[in-house]
Structure formats: C-alpha cells, structure tokens
Design a protein around this nucleic acid. Structure first.
Lengths: 225, 225
DNA sequence: GAGCTTGTTGCGCAAGTGTATAAATAGCCC
DNA sequence: GGGCTATTTATACACTTGCGCAACAAGCTC
C-alpha cells in the first residue's frame, strides 16, 4: 500500500520525531554504530544508511558530524585501537605485585574476555587488512604495536632483573618480540575458535610458553585448574 | 577527443578485439584478478568491473564462468587458502632429515618469503574478518587451522620421541597450540612490519622460542648469522 | 510564550553496483 | 573457405551508494 497514512491523523506528512543530543554523545553513538556495522557486515556492508539506522538517526546527520564516510571510519578505527591497547595495558597497572605476577596477569588478561572477543577480532582483521594500502592505517597499527611491545619489554626487563639476570638490549628485544607473538597468536586462536579451548586454557598455555621463553621455573599459583 | 576513431579505418563502431581462452585458464585469471583487487582495494573495492579490467576482459564475462560475485569470491578465498597451506606443509616434506631439522625448517619456511608477504596477509585479514558472520568462511578457516596444527603436533611428537621423552596427549596438544601461536604471531609481525626485522631474524626468534617451548637445548646449525 | 539557533530530517542527484540479455565474432570442424 | 557454436562484448536496467541542500522543529534565551 504505497499511499499509507500512518497511525497519526491523516493530514500532515508528519515528519519523524527526534531529540537533540549533545555533540559528544552523538559522535560516540555514530562511532559505535559504525563499529557494529563493520563487525557485522564488513566494510562493504557498513553504509551510511545502515550506520545511521543503527544509531537511531537518519543518514544525512552523519555529514553534520563528520566530513565524510572516510573520516568516520578512521575515527572508528582509532577508537577501536585506543580501547584495545588501553584494556591490554590496564592489566599491567597492578602496583603492589612482583614483576613476575604482573607479567602473568598481563598474559592472562590478554587471553580472556573481553579481549578475546570475536567482534573485536573481526574489526581488527577488517581494518588491518587495509593497512597494506592505507598508510594512515599502517601507521596507526605500527604505533599501537610498538607501544604494546615496549610495555612487554619493560616488564620482561623487570622480571629478569628480579631473577638477577642481565640480558643485553638485543636479547630483551627478542624476548619482547617472541612474547608479543605468543600473545597475538593465542589471541587469534581464541577469537576464531574459542569453543575449542576450555576456559583459562589459552591463558595457561600462554603463561607456560612465556615462562619457557624467558627460562623461568614455573610458578604454581598462576596455573589454571 | 570524445569521438576518437582508433587506429583502424574509421567506419565501424569497431568492437573490442578479443581472444578465446580455455575455460581453466580464464577461471584462473579471473580468480587471480579477484585476489589482486581484494588485496589492493579491499572487498568493497573489488567490483566486477575492476576485476574484469585487471583480467583483461569485460565485466559481463565473469557471469559466464561464475554464477555471481559471491561464488567468485568464495572460489578466490578457497584458492588462497589452498596455496597457503600447501606452501606451509611443503617445508615438512624433507624425507632424509631428523625431526628436529624438519621442525626448524618448517618454522624457517613459515617466517620467510614467500609466506611472509604483505599481499597474502592483507588477503588473509580481509577474508578472515568476515569469518564471524560467514559460516562457510569460518569452516574453511577451522579446517585449515586444524590441518596446520595437526602437522605441527605430528612433528612435535617425532621430535620429542627422538629425545626419548613421552608426552601425553594433553601436553602434545598444548605444545602444538603454542607453537602454532608463535608462528602465527611472528608471521603477522613480519607481514605488517617486515622492515623492522633483519633478514632471518624472525626465523631465528621463532626457532629459539619453539625450542624453549619444547625444552630443547639449542642447536647451532640453524641459527642465522 | 516569542524568537532564534542549529541539530535533524527528507528528498534529490549523479555515479557506481550486480545482474540480465542481445548482438558479434573467434576459432574449430568439415 | 563456409558454417556453427559458444566465448566474449556491449548495452540496458533496477537498485544502492555517498553526498548536497532546503525545510523543519527541538529546545535554549529572553
């Protein structure tokens, strides 16, 4: 029925009701809707109309807050990266803990929810797949990666110092690269096929592997039961 | 000059010249053009016209070989996965070598060109990013991953047997998961930021880390100089 | 409440998309 | 060489896309 009059008294074209929101709130909602759309349908499925529908607004409004779709996607990716690295580093913030405990907590945090998450992985993969062609994406990744690796390297240095070992810079770098790879690799496995692993299994494997890499004797207290 | 007559005598609308190719050859070319397009511009940029242009044909021809774009993309992904796993497993085919040497060769092969490659990584990430929403992609990955991990587990079993150690099934599984993660993680680092590592450095780190995971004493012969 | 600002809608547009189909021609068979 | 067939081109079509723009109204100020 093309000429339908909605439930309102049939006179005016009856525009859609709306609420004015604060700028920051709207931008946040639009970015979140963008990430949802990309995670669910990929970059090709994330159209302005889809995003707007999800955010509860009409497509035209997006242009009021972002110069274009390109910029919206860039901001969404930046927000994603920021959240990921923030969560990851948060696990290192334990003040009163031995370096060894902080390292184990770091590994554990990175190999459990919410960091192990299919949606986040989907987003990461979708965006990172464009890094080869998009220099701004590549740079964003590089910075995030190096920041992450430097954190790892710092903790490793503390751990080894506590063991009275004195690795040189090259060894430290290699340890950081290897540990970073272990976490990344297990993270991917967990995100892609989480149900193949029992709860805590990936974290336990991660800790054991990291300890083997650093040549540490196992501690009982961090092994999952 | 909009009304250009090409080098031919100016009379006919002069259709584009073409050559008939064998079916297999055309399908192959179209799949390769598809992978190139996806790697360069992502799934959204891989339009039928772009793909056809790259393959040196017109867009309509694609429908003569594939039911639709969806099927073309699926076949392209299958071809990519097949190539990746084939290359990876090839390194294990050394007949006259110790298990330990084969494991090291496997790690080395997976952490050097052509497996370390920005284009392949871009393709992998782009497709795998859709795995969360596309069950057929998820299944294809799962199978590839398990096949890969089983190969790793088999070699690990041989290596440990040669050392007269007798791991149970659970330990074997954990070793395989960990080693798989190490290779995956280093692979990503190499693909995304290859120039941050000196040639052979990633392979050397990989071998050292794997040996540490398995509790093996280092061998000199596989350390890059 | 009147008036004003501006966040928000609704609609139109040109470009580009995948698909459908008719017309042409390359290359094999005789 | 002449026909035949099916590969290939070319064009059309319905639809979606990002973007531009004018009208509208939500909610503040007075």
């Amino acid at each position: 029925m093309p000429d339908a009059a909605d439930s309102a008294p049939m006179n005016a074209p009856s525009r859609r009701r709306f609420r004015r929101e604060g700028e920051e709130r709207r931008r946040q909602d639009l970015i979140e809707a963008t990430l949802d759309s990309v995670a669910e349908r990929g970059l090709q499925g994330a159209t302005l109309r889809t995003i707007a529908l999800r955010a509860g607004v009409t497509a035209g409004l997006i242009r009021h807050y972002f110069p274009g779709k390109e910029e919206l996607l860039q901001e969404a990716y930046a927000a994603l990266m920021g959240r990921m690295t923030e969560q990851a580093k948060a696990a290192l913030a334990m003040e009163d803990a031995s370096p060894r405990q902080r390292l184990a907590a770091f590994v554990t945090a990175n190999l459990n929810v919410p960091i192990i998450d299919a949606r986040v992985f989907s987003l990461w993969a979708t965006f990172i797949g464009r890094a080869g062609a998009d220099p701004s994406l590549a740079r964003a990744h590089r910075e995030g990666y190096l920041g992450f690796r430097n954190e790892v390297e710092a903790v490793v240095a503390e751990v080894l110092a506590a063991e009275r070992r004195e690795p040189d810079a090259s060894q430290l770098r290699h340890h950081a690269i290897a540990i970073n790879a272990i976490i990344d690799g297990l993270w991917i496995e967990g995100c892609l096929a989480g149900e193949m692993f029992s709860p805590g299994e990936l974290a336990a494997i991660g800790i054991k592997t990291v300890e083997a890499e650093l040549g540490l004797a196992p501690l009982k207290q961090f092994q999952e039961k």
